[in-house]
């Protein structure tokens, strides 16, 4: 099978005009996503992790033309989605659906669940009769574990987990090939998180969905992804198959993130070394020279400020001048 989605050098730049700037002052660029590349095979999941504000969500929105992006997003090896007009993009929107972070906020409070789930059908399959539409909505509700007799209820009558199921049903009712999940479980209780992740895995297996799964929780990503990509300040730091990344992280940032994941065993947890990261992420309007991570990197050296590490590589991509396993001196 051919690659479903092939992304090359995706960039999203926002022009920022600060309050008090003169009208003729050129707006300063905020590079939210800065040269991200990856491939996604059908039926595979790419996990995307990183701190808040590292450009995860913006990357997802750039992929589907929700924010102006540059670069190349090749769909099924044929069509570049970036230059498409909204009209030309429409058929692809049926094939790429999205689910959102806040389950309740992503559902229109004035619409019944049935109408919410039917909306993509109404948009992309206007040929369907009302009865057919209803049948598909019913089937989809059952598929995601909702009672079809709740079809006339309103979103505020559902719990967070149920709302996310509604969001998933809405996304899958048009039978997409790619599902972009923008932190779909971050707003849910841990027990519900597991249910939703299991549901997504099950649906992926049955429907052959490809997924881009965005999260800031590495343990959730570990559960669902085939490949994992770590972003920092809009750049790829490390990308590898899940096993490789979790067993043998090479980038100090990935190592720091992994060391922060709590282990539900007090003995191991206490014995485990933590790599502390000082300070906050620098402003994406004024990123550090060279390697963007160098300001917080325990391994930073003089050359890190001069050379931008390349992100070339095969299966396991590491954007670091001094990659390698964790060193004893770095942990606390």
């Amino acid at each position: 099978m051919s690659t479903l989605l092939s992304v090359r050098d995706l960039r999203v730049t926002f022009p920022i005009t600060r309050a008090g700037d003169m009208p003729w002052t050129a707006p300063r660029p905020l590079r939210a996503v800065n040269g991200v590349s990856f491939d996604l095979e059908p039926g595979q999941t790419l996990g995307v992790v990183g701190e808040s504000g590292c450009g995860k969500s913006t990357m997802a929105r750039g992929l589907i033309n929700m924010v102006p992006a540059t670069g190349q997003v090749l769909w099924e090896g044929k069509t570049d989605l970036i230059p498409l007009s909204p009209r030309a993009m429409k058929p692809y929107r049926a094939q790429i659906q999205m689910i959102f972070q806040d389950p309740l906020a992503s559902l229109n409070p004035r619409m019944t669940v049935g109408r919410i789930i039917a909306e993509p059908l109404l948009t992309h399959r206007p040929d369907l009769s009302a009865e057919d539409r209803r049948k598909r909505v019913d089937a989809m509700m059952e598929r995601v574990g909702l009672l079809p007799q709740m079809i006339n209820r309103y979103p505020h009558e559902f719990s967070g987990g149920q709302c996310q199921r509604i969001g998933i049903a809405r996304a899958l009712v048009v039978e997409p090939k790619l599902l972009i999940c923008d932190e779909p479980v971050s707003a849910l209780d841990v027990s519900i998180q597991a249910q939703v992740v299991d549901l997504l895995k099950e649906l992926q297996r049955d429907l052959g969905l490809a997924m881009i799964f965005i999260a800031h929780d590495l343990s959730v990503v570990k559960n669902i992804s085939h490949d994992v990509m770590v972003l920092y300040l809009g750049r790829v730091m490390e990308k590898a198959p899940r096993r490789t990344l979790y067993a043998d992280p090479q980038h100090p940032y990935t190592q720091a993130l992994l060391s922060a994941v709590p282990v539900p065993d007090p003995v191991i947890e206490r014995a485990k070394g933590i790599i502390p990261l000082d300070g906050d992420m620098p402003s994406p309007m004024a990123p550090p020279s060279g390697c963007v991570f160098r300001t917080r990197c325990p391994r930073a050296q003089a050359d890190c400020a001069q050379i931008v590490p390349s992100v070339q590589g095969g299966d396991h991509v590491v954007a670091c001048l001094h990659p390698g396993p964790v060193q004893e001196a770095e942990t606390v």
Partner: peptide, 21 residues
């Protein structure tokens, strides 16, 4: 709001979003 974004992401046209959402 996210539900407007969801409608945009699924390709609903602007006049319909205004009237429906």
């Amino acid at each position: 709001r996210e539900y407007v974004e969801a409608a945009r992401a699924t390709g609903v046209s602007a006049p319909v979003i205004i009237l429906r959402h």
